[in-house]
Design a protein around this nucleic acid. Structure first.
Length: 494
RNA sequence: GCUCCGAUGGUGUAGUCCGGCCAAGCAUUUCGGCCUUUCGAGCCGACGACCCGGGUUCAAAUCCCGGUCGGAGCACCA
């Protein structure tokens, strides 16, 4: 029995057995090593701006696991560097996560927790695991690179505690001070040797103003919070590999139980603007219209273009947790989105760079195109013609038809070219093999499509598209997110 | 340079831990064909990969050694 025979046979037995879910044989993430009943995981973005595609990965991966095992997903906003904060992030990040259907169970903001960090720092000082240093950055780095102790490394516990107290009391005293975690001066990786846990920052914080001036570095606050919040699993990019090693010292000194760490490979996202600083500068200078400018890689922009949150989820789940680096594939991402969006995308005719043509329609003809070829219940776009008729074709099609004997205006009629004029053919059926092109009627309205690369395509769209709000498929053009009563739409993908 | 990761078709991945069922699966892209009044969807088919060299073994994508290539980190950023 051949395969097709088998298939046929099965189909007779169980018609549902093949209907299916084409591909998505559910690619699943591997199981975690579950240390306890419930998991506690976290998302730890820095509030330098709204979330972008890159962030969506860690958000979704963590979310997937919390959904699988049950537990908590903490959003921890890491704002311990006042110089690198855009206040919009405090409200936009939770908003972006909601849109992604990431189920955050609690929100923590590190700038609320300064006293906790100070308390933990004091503990480490008391135990001799840290010291206050006043070396210049240059000197400190130099000593470190040559595995030498800085002169402050052996300061007594009491003196360290006293300095620390003064640092917190006296802004000026703090100015040249850092708090350093003792590790191993012989550690093969210089960055892991005695690392800086607090530094002086003389810059107003959007939330706490000038109340603090001695801020923990990421490695310190992360280690403290990961423990205090009870994290069971930490999942992040492998650019944090070294940080994990540094943070482990804090765990070790406090005899805390470590979470399970996972580091996935880096994904480079081509043709996309993702750096907060570049986006912010561009917005400020007027080059971009805002954080949701479709040229940017923010979730806000992608939402505006018509991407679905489900697309992100499927894409990242499919990518998995591999440690090897990879390149983000817009091709695959778009194909997932296309599949999800197609059913609900109404079809419209749009002609780019429109050129008018006129011809005579000798008897009444009504063109009739489905709003969606697979959902006939949505009805048809109908236009009637009789007599002298003017329509628009795209410049591209217009040039192309001069090479042909005749063309088919989609769902309307066949046109024959004779000399410089167009004649509607008597026989109004699509001939096999005939080139089918799009057109819009004379009263089509002007419409622009903005592409993510910044290009703007001008054209005309059929009148029945008026008022549509959602993703449309412009026939033979691509998917476009239209907004009600707007004369500009955003190109989604082919 | 030092430290740490990684390496499966154009792209994204499965398989690698516990060697044989892998002459390597899936998706996407590309190219054919069918269907269709869209260059969309659907269906059928084709092209296309285990980084290199040694070793262990009856047997290696899978284990070991060496090399090559790629990435990350080496900040008082996160």
């Amino acid at each position: 029995m051949s395969e097709s025979e088998i298939r046929l046979r099965l189909l007779q037995l169980d018609p549902d057995s093949f209907t299916k879910e084409k591909a998505h044989q559910k690619r699943e993430l591997p199981d975690l090593e579950v240390l306890s009943e419930k998991v506690v995981m976290r998302l730890a973005p820095s509030p330098s701006g709204p979330l972008h595609i890159g962030h969506s990965r860690m958000a979704i991966l963590n979310d997937e696991y919390v959904k699988r095992y049950g537990g908590e997903l903490i959003l921890r906003i890491e704002d311990t560097n006042p110089r690198n904060i855009d206040p919009i992030a405090y409200s936009q990040i939770p908003e972006d996560l909601r849109w992604l259907n990431v189920n955050v169970t609690s929100i923590i903001i590190q700038s609320d927790r300064m006293d906790i960090y100070y308390r933990e720092a004091e503990k480490l000082l008391s135990n001799g695991h840290a010291y206050i240093c006043s070396c210049s950055p240059e000197l400190f780095r130099k000593l470190k690179l040559s595995s030498q102790a800085c002169p402050h490394r052996d300061t007594s516990v009491d003196r360290n505690l006293e300095s620390f107290e003064n640092i917190l009391k006296d802004r000026n005293f703090a100015r040249d001070k850092t708090l350093v975690i003792k590790t191993d001066l012989k550690h093969p990786n210089p960055s892991v040797r005695d690392w800086i846990a607090f530094r002086f920052v003389d810059y107003p914080h959007p939330r706490t103003g000038s109340r603090y001036w001695f801020y923990p570095t990421m490695n310190f606050s992360v280690a403290i919070d990961d423990h205090l919040l009870g994290l069971t699993h930490v999942m992040r990019g492998k650019d944090h590999l070294n940080n994990t090693e540094k943070q482990r010292y804090i765990y070790r000194y406090n005899k805390w139980k470590e979470p399970k760490y996972y580091h996935f490979g880096l994904v480079s996202i081509p043709d996309t603007i993702l750096h907060a600083s570049e986006m912010r500068d561009g917005i400020r200078s007027g080059r971009f219209s805002g954080w949701d400018d479709v040229r940017l890689g923010t979730l806000m922009a992608m939402k505006k273009r018509g991407y679905l949150p489900e697309t992100f989820r499927r894409y990242w789940v499919e990518s998995g947790l591999r440690e090897s680096d990879a390149e983000f594939s817009w091709e695959i991402f778009d194909s997932i989105n296309r599949e999800l969006i197609d059913r609900s995308a109404l079809r419209f005719s749009f002609v780019k760079d429109p050129l008018p043509i006129t011809f005579n329609v000798p008897y009444n003809v009504e063109s009739e195109s489905p709003y969606h070829p697979e959902v006939p219940s949505l009805g048809f776009r109908r236009y009637s013609f009789y007599g002298r008729t003017k329509i628009y074709l795209s410049k591209e099609d217009f040039l192309d038809i001069s090479l042909r004997e005749s063309v088919r205006l989609k769902d309307f009629c066949n046109l024959r070219i004779e000399g410089h004029s167009f004649i509607m053919e008597k026989e109004n059926k699509p001939r096999k093999g005939i080139k089918i092109i799009n057109w819009v009627p004379e009263n089509a309205r002007d419409y622009e499509v903005q592409f993510p690369d910044g290009n703007i395509v001008k054209g005309k769209i059929e009148p029945l598209a008026e008022g549509y709000d959602g993703v449309s498929q412009f026939e033979r053009f691509g998917y476009v997110r239209m907004y009600k009563n707007a004369s500009v739409g955003y190109f989604l993908h082919k």
